[in-house]
Computed example of a mutant assay.
Amino acid sequence: MKPRKVSAAAAAVLALALAATACGSDDGGGGSDDGKKITVGIKFDQPGVGLKTPDGKYEGFDVDVARYVARQLGYVSDDIVFKEAKSADRETLLQRGDVDFIAASYSINDERRKKVDFAGPYFLAHQDVLVRADDRSIAKPSDLNNKKLCSVTGSTSAQNVKTKIAPQAQLQEYGGYSECLTGLENKTIDALTTDDAILAGYAAQDQFKGKFRLGGFKLSDELYGIGVKKGDTELRNKVNAALEKMVQDGSWKKAVEANFGPAGYRSEPPPRIGVFSG
C-alpha cells in the first residue's frame, strides 16, 4: 500500500509542476507575442492617402483612420499588420480572409456591395483634375477638350471625362500617377485626373509644393468606406462606432488637415456614417 501512496504523491507533484509550467508560458506571452494581430489593407502608393515610405513606415489619411479604428477595436500599434490592397485585389483579399478590413480609398458602389460589406462612409471625395499652378487655360471642365489628359491605365476617371465632360480630350494612360505627375511637370501633359483627395496628396509632397493646383471641378462623388467581409455585421458595426467617435473627438479633422492641408485642399464635412449598414 505504501508504494501506491508514494506514486500518488509523485503524480500530484508532477501534475502541479506541469500546471505551473503551463501558467508560466501564458504569463510570458502578451502584446505582439500572444497572436493578437489585426491585418489591415491599405494603399502603398498614394501619398497623403496610403503610402509605404522607403524606410518601411506607413502614412496617410487612410492609415490614420485604420490605426484609430484598430485601437478602438482593442489593438495597439504593434498588433497592426498592414497589407497592400491594390484596387483590383480588394474584394478578393476580404473574401479570402487575408485582411480583417480595408481602408484604401475604397469607393462604395452597388457592384462592390454585392461582394463585401462597408462601414462608413468616412470621407467624401470628388473626381477632379490637377493642373500646373501657372496654367490658367483650364478654368472649367469643358476646357479639357483638346488637352492632354492623363490617368493610370484602366482608370475609369479619364473615361468619365472623355465620355461625359470633354469628348475631345486627348487621353494619355500611364502605368502610375507618378508618371503622370512627371509629364504634368514637364508639360508633356496638361492635366491629371482622379479623386481629389489622391491628387491633393501628391500635390502636397515636398518636391511638388507650389507647382500644381486642383481644378475644384467636383466631377463625381466618391464615398470612401471601410470594407469588411460580406456578412460580418458585428465587425462592421464596431468599425462604424469607431468612425463616429473619430469624428466626434476631432481626430478625423486633425487627420484631414495633417495629410491634405499642405495642398490647400478643402475637404467636405464628414458624411453620415452607417448609411450602408442596412
Rank of each mutant, 00 (worst) to 15 (best):
Leu149Ser: 04
Lys229Ser: 04
Ser277Asp: 08
Asp62His: 05
Tyr106Phe: 08
Phe260Thr: 01
Ser7Ile: 09
Ile38Val: 15
Ile198Ala: 10
Lys114Ile: 00
Gly31Asp: 09
Gln170Arg: 13
Ser107Cys: 00
Val6Thr: 07
Thr188Val: 13
Gly175Thr: 10
Ala104Gly: 02
Asp78Glu: 15
Phe212Val: 02
Tyr68Met: 07
Ile108Met: 06
Pro47Lys: 13
Ser178Asp: 11
Ala204Asp: 10
Thr193Arg: 08
Asp221Leu: 03
Ala19His: 08
Gly60Phe: 07
Ile42Arg: 14
Phe61Thr: 02
Ala191Pro: 06
Leu199Ile: 06
Glu222Tyr: 07
Gln127Pro: 00
Gln248His: 12
Ile273Thr: 02
Ala88Gly: 07
Phe208Arg: 09
Ala204Thr: 10
Glu185Arg: 15
Met246Asp: 05
Ala125Pro: 00
Ile165Leu: 08
Ala10Asp: 01
Ala255Asp: 00
Gly28Lys: 15
Gln159Asp: 07
Asp110Ala: 14
Phe101Arg: 06
Gly175Asp: 07
Asp55Asn: 13
Glu268Arg: 01
Ala19Val: 14
Ala19Lys: 04
Ala103Trp: 02
Leu235Arg: 13
Val40Asp: 05
Asp100Ile: 07
Asn146Cys: 04
Asp78Ser: 14
Val152Asn: 00
Val99Pro: 00
Leu73Ala: 13
Gly175Ile: 09
Tyr75Arg: 10
Ile226Asp: 04
Ile42Leu: 14
Val129Leu: 01
Asp232Leu: 04
Gly201Met: 05
